[in-house]
Design a protein around this nucleic acid. Sequence first.
DNA 1: TACCAATAGTTAGTATGACAAATATATGAA
DNA 2: TTCATATATTTGTCATACTAACTATTGGTA
Lengths: 148, 148
Amino acid sequence: MTQELFASYSFLLDRTARKVKHYAQQQFKFGKFDVTVDQWLVLKNLAERPQVSQTELANLVLKDHPTLTRIIDLLSKKGLVQRVQHPQDRRSFQLHLTAKGEKKVASLKPRILEIREKAWENLTESDFHEFKRILNTIYQNLDTHNGI
Amino acid sequence: MTQELFASYSFLLDRTARKVKHYAQQQFKFGKFDVTVDQWLVLKNLAERPQVSQTELANLVLKDHPTLTRIIDLLSKKGLVQRVQHPQDRRSFQLHLTAKGEKKVASLKPRILEIREKAWENLTESDFHEFKRILNTIYQNLDTHNGI
DNA sequence: TACCAATAGTTAGTATGACAAATATATGAA
DNA sequence: TTCATATATTTGTCATACTAACTATTGGTA
């Protein structure tokens, strides 16, 4: 491939990712979900994997540790998540949703799936698979921890 | 399409966009380019469209005005860009690269095209066109200013 | 002329992202 | 046991993203 041809991909990728996040955030705001898109990602993963440590959760959601620390701070200020001392390791926390957090996840989950659907109008299932394949290939091409 | 099938696209999109930016930023750092990826985007557009206003430039690079204000502040602190009063409209600036800015763009441009190429290993030209089409469709699906 | 709405840009506040360094604790080797 | 090293989390700093509110200026209109 010639260089000029694909020089624009990073711009398109970045602007689309921002549009997707921004659209979702707007919908969250109109629906008074009272969490950000990134906070939702953390809540959702925590619902699926209770009792994980911050390090494990950071790997699940692909955020670095300082970022996750701050998101957990905000979620715990909102009363949705609690840090509990790990019984063996005093450096570590086990994170879990509060009752309020569980309720939040249950009520938002279906509404958020609907919001996410909007992006795929005029696109087919095979488009989705192509898209996933290309994104994952790019990711691996640039991943220095891929063992190659 | 079923909801569960594509529920993950926003996560994949976001993680890939961050990987692309992060990879480029690492290369910028090793190469001592002394600008960030976003600062580069602004510089490049300014080289192609001299004398634009901040509002025009913000539309070109799809950044909001406060973000662009700060990027221009940083670039002008580095001596790469200058704000010049618009001769007719005292609210507005005409932006232009300094001699140092011109030199920076000329020297970095080919090196950055090389860096961008890495993402497309194992992918074809037709993958690239598919990718572009899908990204643009998603963007337009979520764009509330698309006149529909 | 006087007023008012629109426009260009900045400032302030909150959240996220990357990176470096600090703190506390745990673990393994001498 | 003691020391070196590794791990879990936090703090600090800078850059970017978005929102809202603000200043200055412009342009149209009564």
